[in-house]
């Protein structure tokens, strides 16, 4: 049995209480949500917090609330809850695409959206999803609340704008009309982290051109959105050539590294292949037809 280094443990009762506890126990205290990233690292003794502040009782962090122009998701919302939510599936099918391939049911029953974004693993799927949906993140701290967009929130692998003494409370997704989205991941086996994945969201204009587009990649060495790809899409009518070009540019924007999951050229190929697939599916979902070449 792998066992972590010694630590103390306390259960928080509210957001305010969590912040107090973080303050009280100082820089070596860490929030634990689903625990599916933090606990494995502790067992390997790669993470050695002195205090774990368990937020699983903080009910105010667990909700999925639809408002006219946005969907608010509490940070303690489990992967399984996102996957089970009809509202989420209707508004943002990309979330269901991604959730179906995040880990396995056991992990999804505990792992949370806040923990996923907070962990910021380079192969983590929801960061890409939030990127392309232009989500924003609500961070509570001793000085009150602030709302940051994903570009500001996600600073790079394992680094976010949420400081050690702060708490992610909510993720907000803007609801936009005539929008389609999709996600696809290649994994070596169910439950494996991505070899590579791509997400796309497109918003169509009334004249049948693409009004807004966002493409993101997971585990393929691209931080944030592939802006070059969006640039060629916006204002254009969907076409095979356009999709091909988008794939080519996504591959060019990626900078993957070789590991056990595959070599660089394969991963670059995936950036291309998967970008084309998710773009096509996102367009399809919004009812935009792509004329045969």
């Amino acid at each position: 049995m792998q066992v972590p280094a010694p630590f103390d443990y306390v259960r928080a009762t509210s957001v305010g209480n969590t912040l107090e506890l973080l303050e009280r126990h100082g820089p070596e205290s860490r929030v634990v949500a689903g625990g599916h990233s933090l606990l494995p690292m502790m067992k390997l003794r790669l993470a050695r917090p002195e205090w774990l502040i368990d937020i699983n009782d903080v009910a105010e962090l667990r909700h999925i609330t639809e408002e006219p122009d946005r969907l608010r998701v509490g940070s303690l919302t489990r992967h399984a809850a996102l996957l089970a939510s009809d509202v989420v599936g209707r508004l943002f099918p990309i979330v269901h695409d991604a959730e179906k391939v995040i880990a396995d049911p056991v992990v999804r029953n505990r792992g949370t959206i806040g923990g996923s974004l907070g962990q910021a693993d380079p192969a983590e799927d929801l960061t890409t999803v939030c990127d392309v949906l232009r989500a924003s993140v609500v961070i509570a701290g001793p000085g009150g609340e602030r709302v940051v967009d994903m570009a500001e929130f996600h600073r790079g692998p394992y680094e976010t704008a949420c400081e050690q003494h702060e708490l992610i409370t909510e993720v907000r997704f803007p609801i936009r009309p005539r929008m389609g989205s999709a996600y696809e991941k290649v994994e070596r086996r169910v439950g494996d982290w991505a070899v590579g994945a791509a997400g796309a969201a497109v918003q169509m204009a009334d004249d049948g051109t693409i009004a807004d587009a966002a493409i993101g990649l997971t585990a393929l060495g691209l931080e944030g959105l592939a802006t070059e790809v969006a640039a060629v899409l916006v204002g254009q009518r969907p076409s095979e050539d356009l999709i091909t070009e988008a794939g080519r540019l996504a591959a060019a924007a990626s900078s993957p590294v070789e590991d056990q999951r595959g070599p660089v050229d394969y991963k670059r190929h995936l950036a291309d292949e998967l970008t084309r697939r998710v773009l096509r599916r996102a367009l399809d979902r919004v009812g935009a037809t792509v004329p045969a070449a």
Binding site: R188, V195, R261, G262, P263, Y266, K267, H269
Partner: peptide, 8 residues
């Protein structure tokens, strides 16, 4: 025969 190796 992982995806990457098959692709290669």
């Amino acid at each position: 025969c992982t995806p990457a190796r098959v692709w290669e």
